[in-house]
Amino acid sequence: MMDGKNIIYGETAMDKLAQQVRATGQPQDLQSLTERYLEILRELVLAGEQQG
C-alpha cells in the first residue's frame, strides 16, 4: 500500500495508532506504544510489497 519513502515516522498512521490505544482502554507506556506503531507501519509497507 505504501512505499517506505512516503512514510513520515511519527506522522503517518498516527490516527490508527491513537484508535488502537483508545480501543485498549488503558494508557500505554512508550515502549508498547512504539512497538504497536512499528507493527502498523510494517503492515502498511509489507502490504504494499505484497500488492507489488
Partner: peptide, 28 residues
C-alpha cells in the same frame, strides 16, 4: 525509536495522543 516517537507526539498540533511521563493516551 521511542524518543523520536515521543518528540513527534509532543509536537503533534492535533494532540491525537498525549503523554504524561512514560504513558500515552488519546486526548479526545
Amino acid at each position: 525509536l521511542m524518543s523520536q516517537l515521543r518528540t513527534a507526539i509532543e509536537n503533534d498540533p492535533l494532540r491525537r495522543l498525549v503523554l504524561f511521563g512514560n504513558q500515552a493516551f488519546p486526548e479526545a
